[in-house]
Write a protein that binds this DNA or RNA. Sequence first.
DNA 1: CAACGTTGTTCCAACGTTGTAAACAGGGGC
DNA 2: GCCCCTGTTTACAACGTTGGAACAACGTTG
Lengths: 333, 333
Amino acid sequence: MGVSLRDVADLAGVSVKTVSNVVNGYAHVAPATRAKVEEALSRLDYRPNLSARNLRRGRTGVIALALPELDAPYFAELSRFVIDAAAEQRWLVVIEQTDGSLERERQILDGVRDHRVDGLILSPIAIGADELAARTDETALVLLGERIHDGPADHVAIDNVRAARDVTEHLIGLGRTRVAALGAQDSAVSGTAPLRLAGYREALAAHGLPETVVRVERYRRADGAAAMAGLLTGGDRPDAVFCFNDLLALGALRAILSRGLRVPEDIALAGLDDIEDGRYSTPTLTTVAPDKAELARIAVDLLRRRIDGRSGHAPQEVRAGYRLMARESTLGR
Amino acid sequence: MGVSLRDVADLAGVSVKTVSNVVNGYAHVAPATRAKVEEALSRLDYRPNLSARNLRRGRTGVIALALPELDAPYFAELSRFVIDAAAEQRWLVVIEQTDGSLERERQILDGVRDHRVDGLILSPIAIGADELAARTDETALVLLGERIHDGPADHVAIDNVRAARDVTEHLIGLGRTRVAALGAQDSAVSGTAPLRLAGYREALAAHGLPETVVRVERYRRADGAAAMAGLLTGGDRPDAVFCFNDLLALGALRAILSRGLRVPEDIALAGLDDIEDGRYSTPTLTTVAPDKAELARIAVDLLRRRIDGRSGHAPQEVRAGYRLMARESTLGR
DNA sequence: CAACGTTGTTCCAACGTTGTAAACAGGGGC
DNA sequence: GCCCCTGTTTACAACGTTGGAACAACGTTG
């Protein structure tokens, strides 16, 4: 093994505890002693053994971030911010991928128990509020990016309903009347899809326009392309499409362009997430930009409070900001 | 704290060590005893405390993956595979982001996080072979995606020179004669850029064609767009461009299209990495597809060997496979 | 100058686990 | 009936750390 407190203590000619005190910044250490110890510390290049420290303190200094898939750009971008925010608390972040499967989400929620992590930030897809409420484990938990009403855990997200309504209003504001929604899901118990759908419906209802809703299995480019292709072969072609995330929109864009139609002239297109790809597509993609840094910061902050002291008992519900980013895909004709 | 071996032992009426033996699958435990213990284990829902186990065993069960930035799609996709491959070894993966800064790479190599991780997979950008060789830390290390000749550590990558030559040959094969390379770098001591540049040069030289090399600061879409814009305002417009990664290519694509030029009719375009974005851009992007799953698997495997037993002493150099993916951006005219 | 408080340091125990070695029980061979 | 062997179980120590009690040294106060 490496250098231990005992080694340092021997070299400095003091007790192990004194070295520990120096390392931990305990106040009452004589300057001379402190100097001796610090000299020894740096001579030996001492690094605390964190397994031991954690065993003693009952903490691991590691939190888990569980999300559907790391290679979806939105989650990759979000992870980056979470890692950075966690680094400020001197936490390491391990990433778990659920693939959106209920199985995996259960497993992770459950497996958090083997004391490997102090807390968990979960971006749930499949699991329901009731099941979450029923969990016995007491590990700190923060839900990210989904709204489980009156949920059993702290939760941070943007206002999905309002964001969806804003985008839809934007499309309607262009003068489009056949506005489709792409990205509804059958399975999602409590995901964001129903919320975005609700926002879409609110906007259409407010203008007395008819709904067209297309379902998808997952939220990848391929799903967007396939769904869009279906929409284009149908009789009544939409003149605007709100995709529930940017990947779907980019897939849809591809499907539209490859059929010789134009965006935005023939079909205006908008997404949600503001992934970087959408800023460089042709045309660039109108979208909603959640404040990812804020989401991450809040999530880590909530987790810190839960871990530190019981931060009040009632689960908190925090909203992060977002901005509508109008780009080429919804320019007026 | 949670349930410990002692609790289980008390309930089962045996010693702590016997419970430990059952948990660890030790052979010589009487069936009756084993049954009793297992009953108690499940009654109490025992989970081993990994801090304690790791302290005892001198392992943490965690490896670090250090890469420039998680939100570059290539690294996000790669991370996914690394996490999956590590999961098979029952390792958790913590991700560190270097932002390609020498500072951060040093910091990570040196402080490999105290004793927090058993090994490190590093995708280096800035650090040089000499400095790597000089490192004192003995944590297992595998380099990923870069070729440091006769390096001091295990290393896995695709054959960047050959891959770059293949792409360039492909462009030349279309009948293009003014083939530019986009993505050279001044700073990189030993990055992939010089290797890709070398491959490009080999191909051009073989056909007696002139070189055009454009440098970039970093490998993001914005850099590709800016560099391409520069290339287009110059006098002698290229009729084909090999970008050193897909992000650069997508940025370049945007720059070309926004000037009213066509791809591939006016300019054929190819990248390298095979990120998903390039499969859905319009036109779709010709690229080299490194076998990311294989890269990850090999990296984890090399690391496992280093960690387990001293796996021979000579650093290994392993090549992963790749495929040229010809897509719309290089269709014949 | 004795009692006392303050400051600095050490000793001991404990966190939960597992390797080592020793103790123990039962069975077979003499 | 004794001994040894095998199989099973246990006691103990140790991994490196830190909280708390104990203790030593010192200066202050009555």
